[in-house]
């Protein structure tokens, strides 16, 4: 019936730990259409167009003269996310400019994979927004991310995305279970 009117649906922001995020290598589009979203394939087996991360901003750097942009490092219990915000992300850039590390921050952004000429991969988050939060929010995020990661691992092998993750990454679910366990163990009761 009115399927064509089905309104635009925003892509959900996936919860993912840093040590899984940095393993991303594969990005793809569903259709050739210019406007179709770009997805990164997470090793735990789900496509991801946006991420939500909470951690500690440990350092930030202003770079560039003409085209100013900011880089930052956000640390979670498993590792480090690299975040960027340039003139195409004015909201995030202004927010990041104001925040003094160290601080707990919540970052919403898009995954970005860059392959250097010598074959190394740089995986980062192009931030849409960065805001200061508190420790409790960080702890809630660790639980949330642990739950979502376990959900993905439980469904591993049963979904199309997880089968292609198996193909590209040779994911071993028990490795990621261990990562989840270690992350949770760092949260204080």
């Amino acid at each position: 019936m009115n399927r064509r009117q089905a309104s635009f649906e925003r892509e959900p922001a996936r919860r993912v730990f840093a040590s899984e995020f940095r393993e991303i290598r594969v990005q793809f589009k569903e259709t050739e259409d210019e406007k179709s979203p770009t997805y990164a394939l997470l090793p735990s087996g789900v496509r991801c167009n946006r991420v939500f991360i909470v951690g500690t901003l440990t350092e930030k750097q202003r770079q560039g003269d003409q085209n100013v942009f900011y880089r930052g490092r956000v640390v979670d219990p498993t590792g480090t996310f690299f975040i960027m915000a340039g003139s195409y992300q004015p909201e995030a850039m202004q927010q990041l400019a104001r925040i003094e590390p160290p601080a707990f921050v919540a970052v919403v952004g898009k995954p970005n994979v860059y392959e250097t000429p010598d074959g190394a991969y740089l995986v980062s988050v192009r931030a849409e927004s960065v805001s200061v939060v508190d420790r409790e929010t960080r702890d809630l995020w660790v639980l949330d991310t642990a739950r979502d990661t376990l959900d993905r691992l439980d469904a591993f092998g049963t979904t199309g995305d997880s089968r292609s993750a198996q193909e590209h990454y040779g994911t071993r679910p028990d490795v990621y279970r261990k990562i989840v366990y270690d992350a949770l163990a760092q949260v204080q009761m």
Binding site: L143, A146, R177, K178, Y181, L184, V187, M189
Partner: peptide, 9 residues
């Protein structure tokens, strides 16, 4: 937290 630790471990 405890429930998730059990589930992961």
């Amino acid at each position: 937290l405890a429930a998730l630790l059990n589930r992961a471990g």
